[in-house]
Amino acid sequence: MHDCSLVENKMVDLIFGELSEDESLRLKNEIDRCSDCLSEYRSMNGAMRVFDEAWDASLPDQRFWPRHHEALRQHLADNAPRVSVDRVPFWKQLLTFKLPVPVPVAALIVIALLTLTALALRNRTIAPNLTIAARPSYETMTPPTVKEVPVYLEKVITRTVYVEKKAQEKNASRSKSSDQQRIAQPLTASKEKEGDIFMRAKLTDFQPPDQMRIRVIKRSKDDAN
């Protein structure tokens, strides 16, 4: 069944030689059988023929080409200088140097740099206080006080301190004076039982300086006897 629109679509292929010999022949036969299609085909062919005639007529005169070639030759000579990499100054090479880095890696590097910068700035703001506290001048520093504290038995002292701390926690709500009496009583009692021959150092209200050197002298029961 003949369809003019289908034939018209194929007509372009026929005009521009995109069909095989058999296809061309078949289409031409079909076009010949339809006056509309034949008229259309002739019209399109006629347009192409007019275009080709105009193309030939529009070609420049023979005198034009030597001038055209000379202009082209000159243009190439003027605008296509060979740029050697060696002739580029070193500083220019440095400025134009490109290092291909993947985007994720570049992003990580930037984040790391920003974090380090932020940390460095933060440390800088609090550094003076730390410096004064951690590094006092040796010239202005007071000499350490030496306090000799005789210790009878290490065990006894450890226990005494423990008892004292425990009692403080339990009797936190009680008055200070009653606390001292209650704490001192078991200490004294335990010492008296074991036979205290040394004078005990009273550490109550003792205010140590910033630095203190404590010499601990260990002695046994035998030494006391």
Binding site: D3, C34, S39, S43, V50, F51
Partner: peptide, 26 residues
């Protein structure tokens, strides 16, 4: 492009003496 060129160049479809085709009219 061909249709426009034909139209602009004023190349009208050639008159034909053949019988009109009844099939597949546009």
């Amino acid at each position: 492009a061909v249709q426009k060129l034909r139209e602009q160049m004023g190349v009208a479809p050639a008159p034909l003496e053949l019988a009109q085709c009844g099939a597949g009219q546009k």
